[in-house]
Amino acid sequence: MGFTILRPGGFASNAFAWTEPVRARRPVSAPFADVALPVVDPADIAEVAAAALREDGHAGRTYELTGPEAISPRGQAPVISEALGEEVALVELSREEAHARMARFMPEEVIDGTLDVLGVPLPAEQKTSPDVERILRHPARPFGASVTRNLPAFRWSPPWGARKTPPPPGRTAGPKPDHAHRPRPEAHDLPDAATSGRRRH
């Protein structure tokens, strides 16, 4: 059987790890805040996979899939800020702090390798690839495209029946009190669904 190998770098959707603090208006955090990697939009990965399956000429090929430019965590935070129209602050973690947090959801044997990629990537891991644009005939999507497409995941939304007034940083708005002489609120103002995703390197 024929095969095509897709080799994407870091996913732009790893930023979903920040949805909870962004929605709560708390600072986001990341190690190696100034190390830039050319994260790739999962939508581009999907389009390349579809092209490899449906078009001729891809058998036996290996494609390196990246975004159009390298971007650091410190560079990603302002992109989310601009899309939301409010500030998203970033706090840099030490390697030890990042290791402790990653140990909550990642096998120990994977953590150091992941931190090495994030903190001391090889030149090849920081290099952008032309493969997405060559196959899809349009430029690879920048990090901001993923943010804009998934903006509801980052946007604060009140609990059911609560006022639209945003809570102060670090606090969550509670529901309106029920009063016997007032009708209950209609169930038409449900919060946006937040998604989260992380990818191991």
Rank of each mutant, 00 (worst) to 15 (best):
I5D: 06
L6Q: 03
L6W: 00
G9C: 11
F11C: 07
N14S: 06
T19P: 07
A24C: 10
A24R: 12
R25G: 11
V28K: 00
A33S: 08
D34E: 11
V39F: 00
D41S: 06
P42W: 02
I45C: 11
A46N: 03
A50K: 05
T62G: 12
Y63D: 10
L65I: 03
E69Q: 13
A70S: 09
A70E: 00
R74S: 12
R74M: 11
I80R: 07
G85T: 06
E87L: 14
A89N: 14
L90H: 07
L90A: 05
E97A: 00
A100T: 14
A100F: 12
A103K: 01
R104H: 09
M106F: 10
M106L: 12
E108P: 09
E108V: 10
V110M: 14
I111R: 07
D112C: 08
D116M: 12
V117N: 08
G119M: 08
V120M: 07
P121V: 09
A124V: 15
T128R: 02
T128P: 00
D131S: 02
I135F: 02
P142I: 05
R155P: 03
S157I: 04
P158K: 06
A162T: 01
K164N: 13
P167I: 06
P168N: 15
P169F: 00
T172L: 13
T172V: 15
K176D: 15
K176V: 11
P177T: 05
L190F: 15
L190Q: 08
D192A: 13
A193W: 11
R199K: 14
R200P: 10
